[in-house]
Design a binder for these strands. Structure first.
Length: 267
DNA sequence: ATGGTGGTCCTACCA
């Protein structure tokens, strides 16, 4: 089974690229963030044609929006809200293969947090920190570490030194500040989540999933950040078979600023 | 130090 996560930055605009990515990554399941599309305009026909007969999604006009596209049945779809806010940033479903649940899948889009890394001066940064805090409490309150679970998404935090192009320069930049990393780590530890990327690309290697649109030559500058993640609970760790970032997709025509990432399971 | 780009939807707002 191959599972991909991609911040698509408009599912309507980039449905053709999605088809290429689905084929290229041979994905059975694709989780999207920033679909930016109200549910009534979700591009079902194009996605059905890609072979994803099972879809769970929640969207709104212009902002946010998450979707799970699957070749396997999805059950018990849950649309969750954090921070007493109606934003479409968390959707979950049970993935069913051969009549049995293989895992409970959670697709997240954590707030980006604005520019100023100060929760007093910047409400967006406060929202981001509060959102992560809520997740840290919510998962253990609603699930057990012994469950087979997967969390994917644009978590908008690059936690490790080699998850950014320059650790020292990035310490004051939202996405890599110490307070974000501290809360991110607490969230990860709360369920003993396994970071599937770092199972295959150790901490001493640079690994990114996002490159700014504003860079003149994003590939040459390579000032990336690893903002997107695929985590699994401990019972799934032995089923991890590989991980890759489709960096090439960042260089395709009219790209998202995020590259897709794929984890392969022997499930 | 600043501004650099892109999506949505028409005016800013978000990333």
């Amino acid at each position: 089974m191959r599972l991909t996560s991609w911040n698509i930055n408009s599912v309507r605009l980039r449905a053709p690229l999605l088809a290429e990515i689905a084929e290229y990554t041979k994905s059975d399941i694709i989780c999207l963030q920033e679909t930016k599309t109200p549910d009534e305009f979700f591009p079902h026909d194009e996605i059905e044609a890609m072979g994803f007969k099972h879809r769970a999604f929640t969207g709104m006009k212009s902002y946010n929006g998450v979707a799970i596209l699957s070749k396997y049945p999805l059950e018990d779809v849950r649309i969750e809200h954090r921070c007493e806010n109606a934003d479409c940033r968390h959707i979950a479903a049970r993935v069913i293969k051969d009549g049995k649940e293989v895992f409970d899948l959670h697709n997240l889009y954590i707030p980006a947090g604005g520019y100023e890394p100060d929760p007093v001066a910047n409400d967006k940064f406060k929202h981001k920190l509060d959102f992560v805090d809520e997740l840290t409490e919510w998962f253990p309150a609603n699930h057990k570490k012994s469950e087979k679970m997967v969390v994917v998404g644009d978590l908008n935090i690059a936690p490790r030194e080699n998850d950014v192009w320059d650790h020292k320069k990035m310490l004051k930049v939202v996405s890599h500040t110490p307070v974000e990393v501290e809360k991110f780590t607490a969230f990860q530890n709360a369920m003993d989540w396994v970071d599937s990327a770092r199972e295959f690309y150790p901490d001493d290697q640079k690994l990114y999933t996002w490159w700014s649109y504003r860079a003149k030559d994003w590939a040459a500058a390579d000032k990336g950040r690893r903002l997107d993640h695929i985590w699994v609970t401990q019972p799934l760790k032995k089923h991890l078979k590989g991980h890759s970032v489709l960096k090439d997709a960042r260089g395709w025509d009219r790209p998202s600023d995020h590259a897709p990432l794929t984890t392969e399971f022997d499930l």
